[in-house]
Design a protein around this nucleic acid. Structure first.
Lengths: 353, 353
DNA sequence: CGCGGAACTGACAACGTTTACCGTCTTCCT
DNA sequence: AGGAAGACGGTAAACGTTGTCAGTTCCGCG
């Protein structure tokens, strides 16, 4: 009647002993055969593998971990960014781990900057072999100190500070910011509103620095009053955009530091009756899904999130699998950004014929 | 010079033995003290805790797992759905596990319907205690058979078939489909185009059944020629919408089976010069992020993904933590949908004054 | 002053696998 | 025939923790 009652029986998982008995060899030979070690004849190896298959035997990972002194768990920690960013990170990392022995544990953690040691405790408590640190955790020096002290290896994805520390996967945020700003300035815009991301992310300031360089390069002045602070979320971005657009005179272009906030600016513009890109140009950042599903599609900067996560996982795993005498691996790798010009940017109204 | 050379030293993790030595009691007592078990005097308990804190001691989870015969790992498997759906699932499940001993391992797997036993092998090989199955894996009977045979507990999120099997968290997809279709029909639409999701997801057909009921209820005919098949992705949804909108006469409303495809329909409508909702009404499904960041915001059906994932994790954990003699828990839980009427739907052109 | 019982503590085995070391028995080569 | 290399098994130990059980201490009470 109750299907769960059947499993109340002795449902002991099959162990290596069972396989040994079935194939008529010693447990140790089973181990050797299944792990493709030498000193096993082809006949016995096949015998063992058949028996294992028939019994649906899967070696107990926990026991293997205990003896290997590794959990084969890699953590990924991030802080409420946009869903597509998270998924890109995960997919990149998982793609690298595919068919490996490692498993990916997700560990979102908010407000890492305010309580780094709490995050550190979480990471330690989780029993990881290594951890992938996305912004802003990758820039929490206190956290890095703790991890170093406890000997937990980490790979940092797009950190902005202390770039000599640990495995570092970067993108030149300054150059990326400069590229998108130059694009807008090239088209003739001068009054440019800026919606910053979360100030806790060092990337926000790096991108702003890029904007400044573009302005300097073009001999134009970046109006500090047109810089407002967001936090990478749509809701706050919407208010920030409304704030900017109600200025007099209003900016003719808005640079948002991620696509979600750019999409919010798009909505704010529509609410005020402004056409994009004819009345107002909007550029985002990240090349996330929303930049493609928005209308018009957003001009943005492609951030190779998946590729960086892949790389981070790759180097972290290389580090974990390295025999300790091996030569130090190069710890740093820089990825290229790419400006994607789409439909949300155009010359300012005055310039149109 | 090379910072990694320092860790080549004996960086043995601190064990319970170290704590025992430091506090001058037996390892067993340390274990008891730290786990807040009885039979330890307050004095000794404090002594041990102090020593543990001073040594930054964290018990080895692997060893604990070995003896508990549990890995404290819960898997989540899903198949390339929209990022916000994945993130909602994860957040819901993680929210339940917060501060528990369980950890969430993500296991995306594509084309589960074509090779269920491969997915099963992956789940088994990963050493999980239990697994959360999102669509369409939750409806792969072959997979459920394999998991049952191996005794791996699972919770199914919004399955459509075999609802008596395992832990089942459902939403009435038929009723949800009926609700959104009724909304559109109520406003006076008759020529309604439909963009189905991936046919491998049983939910696609359930929602369609709901549409049919709404049409029947309103005494209207659902034109089978206006049903096109998508796969839940934006790109395919775009082509499907273009296909529908080029019919003569074109539909005055489109029901898309998820928000991504609805956003694509929005873009397709704009490409053809149609205004939404004045010329064309569009409704989505899921209440995902894109339904809020699109413009106009999409009328959609809220699917309580996070809440369902929370529930799935909750019941799965209850099952895992249950002493085997405990009474059978209720295995089924149904969540309510909610129709969200937003800006993308309005009466058809002929009805407007 | 001794006794019963509760409270506390520790020795030992166990979880399932791999590693180490050594011994035996084939097999095949010269 | 002698010898060497390869194949395999036995036994023991290890990984770090907790369950079992027996032992010790401490207390109040007769």
């Amino acid at each position: 009647m109750d299907s769960s009652s059947t499993e109340a029986h002795i449902s002991r998982r099959t162990t290596i002993i069972d396989v040994a008995k079935m194939s008529g060899v010693s447990p140790k030979t089973v181990s050797r055969a299944l792990n493709d070690e030498p000193h096993v004849s082809a006949r016995v190896r096949q015998l063992v593998k058949d028996a294992a298959a028939k019994l649906d035997y899967h070696p107990n990972l926990t026991a293997q971990s205990l003896i290997a002194r590794r959990s084969f768990l890699i953590g990924l920690t991030y802080e409420r960014p946009s869903p597509s960013y998270v998924v890109d990170l995960q997919n990149g990392a998982l793609d690298r781990m595919h068919n490996g022995r490692y498993r990916l544990v997700v560990l979102p953690f908010n407000h890492a900057s305010e309580r780094p040691e709490e995050l550190g405790k979480l990471l330690l408590r989780t029993g990881l072999d290594g951890v992938l640190l996305a912004p802003p955790a990758c820039d929490q020096i206190e956290l890095l100190d703790l991890l170093d002290r406890q000997g937990l290896p980490y790979a940092r994805i797009t950190p902005q500070k202390d770039l000599a520390r640990g495995i570092v996967i970067t993108m030149d945020e300054v150059a990326a910011g400069q590229a998108v700003a130059s694009h807008v300035l090239d088209m003739g815009h001068s009054r440019v509103g800026i919606i910053l991301g979360d100030p806790a992310h060092a990337a926000s300031l790096a991108r702003l620095e890029g904007y400044r360089r573009a302005f300097a390069e073009h001999g134009k002045i970046l109006d500090e009053n047109l810089i407002v602070t967001g936090d990478f979320t749509y809701a706050v971005g919407y208010d920030a955009a409304l704030d900017l657009l109600r200025r007099d005179p209003a900016p003719t272009a808005i640079l948002a530091q991620n696509d979600d906030m750019a999409a919010a600016a798009l909505a704010a513009a529509r609410a005020l009756g402004l056409a994009v890109p004819d009345d107002l140009s909007i550029a985002g950042f990240d090349d996330s899904e929303v930049s493609r599903t928005a209308w018009p599609q957003l001009t943005t900067v492609h951030q190779p999130v998946s590729a960086m996560a892949w790389d981070a996982a790759d180097r972290l795993i290389a580090r974990l699998d390295a025999t300790h005498e091996g030569p130090a691996l190069d710890q740093r790798h820089e990825h290229a950004h790419a400006l994607l010009v789409r439909g949300s940017t155009a010359p300012p109204p005055a310039y149109q014929e």
